[in-house]
Amino acid sequence: MNGENISFWEKLGKIDRRWIFLIIGLVVFIPIAFGLRMTVHVSPAVKSAYDTINRLPEGSVVMISIDYDAASMPELQPMLKAILRHCFDKNLKVILINFWPLGLPIGNQGLEEVAKEYGKVYGVDYMNLGYRPGDIAVMLRMGTEIRSVFYGDIKGTPLDSLPMMKNIHNYDDIAVVVGLEAGSMGDYWVQYVNARFKQDLILGVTAVMAAGVYPYLQAGQIKGLIGGLKGAAEYEKLVNHPAFGHIGMASQSWAHVAIILFIILGNIGYFMERRRKRGL
């Protein structure tokens, strides 16, 4: 009896890795396919991002910068959608801007999708500036006049023919800039736009970057920080619209639990084997 028992654990400890692949695939697949969700606790960093936007009076302008591409889409797109829902719900005006050319279609797709949900009108409630090369130079020149860099919007429509842009010229007319970051543009927003123009900033970053950006929040250079899919899920909770962040977070959590269980099983197998070998 006992012998069988031990060999079971030992076998488990040496299980073919394809079972592990299968389990990881399943724990990620199931929550997505069946829309399973996860209870999420809101962290202060995300709450403070939410509060910053929530405090804005109706009609204020929020600029969202799409600084990512397809590779970071699973983490940052849910963030974009949650923030857009918050803005449209509060009747804030949204300007999208892109610093990664490959992010252009991704950002626009998210914007149009959420705008449709809320019945918002292009050019009146929201608009997309598109992409201009030049990173920091573009950021700095928008400090004096947006039109000095963007003559038209993403489709080439002159800015002045969009009703909402009439009184928007530079950062003075923008209440908050939200940077969704997969690279170094977030540092530029802080080091150039916040430092030089005292512009209020919120950053949404990939999970890997979160620890590196945290000091900005501590130093008060940014008003809020949304980190990874987890941050997106927290924001979804705050705007009361659980969506992909929650689902993705369920996948994440189950995958993490699965890996930790693997580690534990592996160790049980290892100790059983060692005990048996000592016994012999």
Binding site: F29, T206, A207, G228, Q252, H256
Partner: peptide, 12 residues
């Protein structure tokens, strides 16, 4: 780990 799982989520 989290970043790597995100990649799989993206493909799913």
């Amino acid at each position: 780990v989290m970043a790597r799982i995100s990649l799989l989520i993206g493909r799913m």
